[in-house]
Design a protein around this nucleic acid. Sequence first.
DNA 1: TTGTACGCGTTATCAA
DNA 2: TTGATAACGCGTACAA
Lengths: 342, 342
Amino acid sequence: MDTSRPGRPGAPVTIGRVAEAAGVSRATVSRVMNGLASVDPELAGRVREAAARLGYEPSTVARSLALGRTGMVAIVVPDLENPMFQRVLHGLTDAAGERGHRLLVAGSNEDVREEVVLAAEARRRCDGLVLCAPRMGTGQLAGMAAKLAPFVLVNREVPGIGAPSLLVDHAAGIRDIVAHLLALGHQRLAYLAGPPTSASNRDRLDALRGYPAGRFELVELECGATFADGHAVADQVLRERATAIVAYNDLVAFGALGRLHELGVEVPGQVSVVGFDDIPFARYTTPPLTTASVPQVELGHQAWHRLWALLERRTPEPDVRFTPRLEVRGSTGPAPGALRYM
Amino acid sequence: MDTSRPGRPGAPVTIGRVAEAAGVSRATVSRVMNGLASVDPELAGRVREAAARLGYEPSTVARSLALGRTGMVAIVVPDLENPMFQRVLHGLTDAAGERGHRLLVAGSNEDVREEVVLAAEARRRCDGLVLCAPRMGTGQLAGMAAKLAPFVLVNREVPGIGAPSLLVDHAAGIRDIVAHLLALGHQRLAYLAGPPTSASNRDRLDALRGYPAGRFELVELECGATFADGHAVADQVLRERATAIVAYNDLVAFGALGRLHELGVEVPGQVSVVGFDDIPFARYTTPPLTTASVPQVELGHQAWHRLWALLERRTPEPDVRFTPRLEVRGSTGPAPGALRYM
DNA sequence: TTGTACGCGTTATCAA
DNA sequence: TTGATAACGCGTACAA
């Protein structure tokens, strides 16, 4: 049988052509290229020379098929344009890249059905999955768990499905924010709610509602997760006469900030604004945004770490929960006409 | 020979198991799954039933090997955290997704060597490549062209290598910006230069230098492409007594804006600031940023369109060149103490 | 240490 | 229309 598979001059250079050129078997070429088994130095030299001369590069696809792994991981996010996810992505690519893994990225555009499809398909193309703030229901996620494994969850927790979670203690972040605002004398807080499908939105809302009655008045306003959403809802805040805005995330806070500026409302003179996440822009707005800082790049690093552990040892590591750090900047100040309590 | 490859219960569901279950050959299953050749309706039904019951999903890797294409394209960018690239990425994923293609993304962190490696490796994993503002030299790019093809260039032009370019007319953008500033009476402009390896930075710089002598004084300051770079260089601008800042991009402009605010310098009262790109944040800063608007999402769409044409017909389409649109917002105003000329 | 031969899961060719 | 069989390119027991 023809074991060397020579091929015509123009044909792609395969392992067979290298073997032929070096006068060895394909198995030997494979061994040399992967540096695994011991090979006679002289043969190895010939192989390397031939490979270099021919410009041979092993087919990743063929390797994937033979090895049963692709060297790729996928990340699925609801919104590709959210800087929060971009930083997580950045941390993830860097960490995975060090282990020779590449990244497949998919954005679901906040569409649950698309998310489900993307996650399943991405998983089949990759060795593992990072599901970033998945919007699908818990049941659906649990139902797909077997098909998706191994995978890790960011900003989402579903016990018992064998997927480690990378969490942010939203409640703690909200508590710090509220404490800060109460200390400044604010009595009436407007929460600009994120997407209803967002687990972190529920966390934050629950934390706000969980406060002992009478500490402050809470105005809940449906909003969203983008600039435009925050921009659109700012007028409502004014109508509600809230003196402070707690935004679902920094993007929403920026939108509100921009609208308030258009209306000539002073921040923080008349209204204070707080965001969540601390995306890079937050410190450069005018005024700089007070926000709960989430270690986004670190989240990406840890996501890879957890996924890697799963890929290697198949034994899930425990969840991690990051506590956001309140970054007090210029967008918060004393409530108008209020006594400061501390 | 065993043509059905039954496999044990726990084993992955392959085409062979479906064939076995449906009592047909693997070839028939393949035909049914791909809906290509005509198959007896009854057999097709049996196959579909078996596939559904077993939860069969064709291996993308095996298909890739057999088909010679992966259904993936890669995008390589210098800076994953630049919203400009994120929007291009967004446009690209959406457009490619409609054709059933997924995206591999790689960020070179502004490192040329890494960029070269990433591009080559990404290409071998995918059917095509989008090189976004590649930092590598023209010679190097031309040298790799054969290995990288098919690919398209964004924000970069290298004639004769068979790669279509998606360009932005930076010179036109700069001309509009300068005309705007001159009309406002500015005489001394500071250009905050981007990375030296950036082609678009050279374009912008050339356009500035190309102005007839005497129209204005140009102060060139080395800067970079990020917030931090712009933030750090703002003091220098003041020392140079420029009345207007032309930033390499919006990010740099934001950084400068932030620093000026910290210093109590009024924008645009004392200094005007102009960006480039018009990333989503630009309209929400305080003051909103005057900038040259680049259709980023459209750039991503067109990148896919060009790449797709290459993948299908192998005949490169002509380059496209987008003309930025000057968005005059609040960050520019009359030069201090100057007469307005129009 | 080296080579043979088979498996990875799919599609494509060609007879039947 | 269907099925056997050969690719696709590589890794790897197993034998030599």
